[in-house]
Every structure is written in structure tokens, then in C-alpha cells.
């Protein structure tokens, strides 16, 4: 969803945090052995230094002591230790119909595995079935195609009864009061800022507070869309939101502001950008404007004479 653009109301946008393709996790020797056995249809625990069988195996016991190298086959018969009934599953859950989570201890193991327990078909919101109880004897249901992951076990099922992940986090984020006001100005083609009542410095965009004095700021100031490049980088690493490489990212001190903002500079060969260059915002056609910095494609030279370094050195 693009940022919502109603005249009133807070500015919000949806956001997803997702590493493309999912994280790649190396598992090390102990988890690796477990997952390999799991893929091949066997449950193994590992013998701890104190003689117990840790399941699922880790490189260490719960006191941090290294385990022995002895792997022990356990189960597949297992016992439910405790459980939680999920009448309305969430999107990331292993079933889209009611099921239970359970701590399950295979015969021969001293610790339990958390996994899903399938008790059959239920309507959404169904009451907890009476068959679900501590002590229930269960077995794993193996996935037909196994790849070596904890979900190679599709779920556990009661003995002799009926038949029954990548990471993505989504958000809706608020721009906040100060940024909403600033971007509302940008939607009208204006740069707005605040003047601090204590130090008198002008912040564009405004933050609603002065980071130096730690006080709220309220006095609104409008500054022009012209400014001076204080310093810059020539980027040769492509970025989806920037023009073709090389592109220039520059700190631009807008006239009347006391703080430079980072923005793109174009309309001039990258090797001719310099400190002190005078620039002006290049706006998209007015009909494309919204409450977003995307209204400004980049900054480009005005053709005015450069500002001497002495006049901008306090801003770099």
C-alpha cells in the first residue's frame, strides 16, 4: 500500500521486513546430525555428560556443558507432557484448522520436543477435544518429502486413531506528527521546518524537538527549495531508488536551514559535483505529488556561482 494521502488523518504506510529468499542458517554438527536423521525418518537424542538423553540434541546441556558424541535413537512412540489448544490458528501456524501445540517426550529421551499435535478435522473456533490430555501417547507423522528441518515431522498424531518457514514480519508504521507535517508541506511544494526556541537553529525537516537542547519545538519556518552542497559521495553501487551508477548522494544545506539533508544530486556529471555547488529541487509534475519525498526527483545545479568553502565548513 502506498502512503495514504487523505488531507486529514495520520500518515501511515505498510511495511514488510523480509530478507529476500530467507536467512541461510548453518546448523553445526549436532543439530546437523539430528536433522539428517530426521530427514531419513529417525529421531535421535544425544547423551549428556551426566548420562541423560537430550532431545532434541544440542551441543550443550542446560548447564552449558558440552554433550558426548553419542547419539541415541529415541521414540518414535512418545508422550504428551503438556499442551495448548489453538482454536483459531495464525497465518504462520502449521495448520489452518484447529490443532494443539504440545511438549512431546519420545520414549528413551529425558527432555521434550515442542511440536504440533493433529487431533483431526475441526471447525474454526472448535472447543478443545476431550481426547487431548497429558499422558496422551503419540507418534510423528512424517512428511513424504523431507529436506532436513524440524518440519520434516508434519505433526504428531495420537497412536492408532484417525487421520487427521521463511520469516516475514508486517507492520503498519506511523510517520509521526513532525514528519506528517513536513510531508504535508512537501505535498504543497513547500519545505517546512522548526526553529528551536532555545538555540534559534532551524531544522528542516523538523523533528518537533531540538536534539541539542532536548526541548519541544513548535515555531514553523518555511525555507526555499534552493541550497548548497556541503559534501557528497559518488556512489558506484547500484540502488533501486537511485538513477544509474554513478550517482551522487549529497548533503544539501537549504537556504535558511541550519542542518544539511541527504539527497540525490543530478543534472550534472558526477565528476563535476563539488562542495559549494548551488542546487535547486527538481519537482515531479504537480499532478503526481503526494505526501512523500518522491515529489522531488533530485536536486540539480542552479548555475549560480559556488559558495566558498569557508562559508559552509561549519556544516560538514
Amino acid at each position: 500500500m502506498p502512503p495514504s494521502d487523505t488531507e486529514v488523518g495520520a500518515l501511515v504506510a505498510d511495511h514488510a521486513l523480509e530478507f529476500p529468499g530467507g536467512y541461510t542458517r548453518s546448523v553445526g554438527p549436532v543439530i546437523g546430525r539430528f536433522l539428517t536423521e530426521l530427514r531419513d525418518g529417525r529421531l535421535v537424542g544425544v547423551r549428556t555428560a551426566s548420562g541423560g538423553v537430550l532431545f532434541p540434541p544440542l551441543e550443550y546441556d542446560d548447564d552449558g556443558e558440552a554433550v558426548t558424541g553419542e547419539f541415541v535413537e529415541v521414540g518414535p512412540d512418545a508422550t504428551v507432557q503438556t499442551y495448548a489448544w489453538v482454536p483459531r490458528p495464525l497465518p504462520g501456524h502449521p495448520f489452518d484448522r484447529p490443532f494443539a501445540w504440545a511438549l512431546i517426550k519420545p520414549d528413551g529421551a529425558d527432555t521434550a520436543l515442542l511440536h504440533a499435535l493433529d487431533l483431526g478435522e475441526f471447525e474454526p473456533g472448535a472447543k478443545q477435544p476431550k481426547t487431548l490430555r497429558t499422558g496422551l501417547r503419540v507418534r510423528p507423522k512424517w512428511r513424504a518429502t523431507r529436506t532436513g528441518g524440524i518440519t520434516d515431522i508434519e505433526c504428531f498424531r495420537p497412536e492408532v486413531t484417525m487421520i487427521g518457514a521463511p520469516s516475514r514480519v508486517e507492520y503498519r508504521l506511523s510517520a509521526g506528527k513532525a514528519l506528517t507535517r513536513f510531508l504535508t508541506g512537501i505535498a504543497e511544494g513547500r519545505f517546512l521546518g522548526h526553529r528551536c526556541g532555545v538555540c534559534g537553529k532551524v531544522y528542516v525537516p523538523m523533528k518537533g524537538l531540538c536534539p541539542v537542547d532536548g526541548v519541544p519545538t513548535t515555531e514553523e519556518v518555511e525555507v526555499p527549495d534552493t541550497g548548497t552542497v556541503t559534501t557528497y559521495a559518488v556512489n558506484n553501487i547500484p540502488d533501486p531508488r537511485a538513477p544509474a551508477v554513478p550517482f551522487v548522494s549529497a548533503y544539501i544545506l537549504l537556504d535558511g536551514s541550519d542542518i544539511a539533508m541527504l539527497a540525490l544530486v543530478a543534472g550534472i556529471p558526477a565528476d563535476q559535483v563539488r562542495m559549494g555547488l548551488r542546487v535547486k529541487a527538481a519537482w515531479k509534475p504537480r499532478e503526481e505529488w503526494g505526501r512523500t519525498m518522491e515529489n522531488i526527483t533530485w536536486f540539480e545545479p542552479t548555475g549560480e556561482p559556488d559558495v566558498p568553502f569557508e562559508d559552509i565548513q561549519d556544516y560538514v
Binding site: H15, A175, T231, Y232, A233, M293, F309
Partner: peptide, 26 residues
């Protein structure tokens, strides 16, 4: 790349390069 951010995000190198340039100029 959270939405709504007013400043462009250019990674660590893109952030520090202008300050290195300022050091060289100074």
C-alpha cells in the same frame, strides 16, 4: 527501507564517504 523516511538511505559506505571527503578538504 522503511516507508515514509524523508532522507535517502545509502548504506554505511554512502553515509561515511561524504565525511571522509570533508576531512580531505579540511
Amino acid at each position: 527501507h522503511p516507508p515514509l523516511t524523508p532522507s535517502i538511505v545509502v548504506g554505511a559506505g554512502g553515509y561515511f564517504a561524504p565525511h571522509i571527503r570533508a576531512y580531505m578538504r579540511r
